[in-house]
Nucleic acid binder design. Structure first.
Lengths: 217, 217
DNA sequence: AAAAAAATCAGGGAAATCCCTTAGTGATTG
DNA sequence: CAATCACTAAGGGATTTCCCTGATTTTTTT
């Protein structure tokens, strides 16, 4: 008989998560789902309380409370031996490369076949990683053309507030009034934010804000 | 023995779709998945070629080739007796209300429990519909506060192309060049589009485009 | 404590956006 | 067939945005 594989799953979409677990279970009885979490926070809490450490953690990127990035970071610090397989819908090169740099062992899109999922798990457990041509392609592209300075940027509360205001059709004057400052300062801050986020216009900022869930539509 | 329930499923995320099908099958052997499609176009083609008409079609909203709205419209014209259950991640009031107006029988978020899925299917087949408090709430809110003039607007190919260009940081001049026209025409068209979509600025257009999946992030 | 970096604000100017009017064209309709 | 509508295009002007320099202050680093 094969050795038991302990699996943890974290994804906020219940139907997807439950379906995924059914798929995993149907791969064979040696796959044991020991943790089923609805977000990163829930996952961390369950893992801390658990007597069993999973061999592999299957994580989504977009989750409330603690997202995929934060959860991977937490795992790296707390349980560095747990291998991470990301399953996500988003395929932004920046996100993928960032996760690879953080040491995740595999990355799957939500539109792969169940067989690929099994292969990914086995590959991670036996070879230590599972990188498809798509992923290595992204990685190579990033190495060659990648914007080395565009590491992940953390925005301050202030910057987020400003970004939210800039993503409306308020004018600088109106924004300045509501933040109790001058048009020129808003202008400066907009410029600084553009440089930080590597975009060229207010429109670019708004698109960044939407992409990164800084404003809710 | 219970009567067989013929089900069609269309969703572009393979893992989700396969998992959903496992969940449905595990509800009981009288649930038969007769069509499994990766998008609306695939769904229509399979249905046209099929000798069996499903009792219920479970559709995603965001799909390539033919999205949920278009698929429902097509079903209404071609197979008006097929009941539609939407399962989607997006919870925008406008989208939900628009689908309800189009006659869909139920709407589920992807983060409900599998039991809700079963209840939704049974409710639709026996009562004819499944509307949660959340959905009826949205509907009521829309009836009272809804923007009556902002019926759903269909954009032409041209308008979509323009909208996509306006949602970048290209200037009017650059957009005019790429569309082989003048700045003044772009300006006019931007204005016309603003009026049509009920927004006041280019930024508003970009936000509309993102909200309505006209540009991919 | 001194030096460096970052933030606030101003002036100014070029470019872009927004919005108005007008004019010609082609298609649709009463 | 005239009238209306939709589209292209231009002029013009008010406003906004973008980007530069530069002075002053605040914060961070050494």
């Amino acid at each position: 008989m094969q050795q038991t594989i302990q699996i943890a799953v974290a994804d906020d979409h219940t139907l997807f998560r439950k379906g995924l677990i059914r798929l995993l279970e149907s791969l064979g009885s040696h796959y044991k789902i020991i943790i089923e979490a609805s977000d990163g926070k829930d996952f961390s809490e369950q893992l801390l309380a658990s007597s069993v450490i999973p061999d592999i953690a299957i994580l989504d990127i977009n989750m409330p409370n603690k997202n995929g990035f934060e959860t991977v970071q937490w795992l790296n610090n707390t349980y560095p031996n747990v291998k991470v397989l990301i399953i996500s819908m988003i395929e932004r090169e920046e996100s993928i490369v960032r996760l690879l740099k953080m040491g995740v062992k595999g990355y799957l899109s939500k539109d792969v076949e169940p067989e690929d999922l099994e292969e990914a798990i086995n590959s991670i457990l036996h070879k230590g990683f599972y990188y498809t041509d798509f992923i290595t392609g992204k990685l190579m592209h990033n190495l060659i053309y990648g914007d080395t300075k565009s590491e992940y940027v953390l925005l301050t509360e202030k910057e987020i507030e400003l970004l939210q205001l800039l993503s409306t059709d308020l004018t600088y004057k109106e924004i300045a009034q509501s933040l109790d400052t001058t048009v020129k300062t808003i202008d400066y801050q907009r410029d600084a934010l553009c440089k930080k986020l590597n975009v060229v216009s207010r429109l670019g900022l708004a698109i960044y804000a939407i992409k990164n869930n800084i404003i809710t539509l």
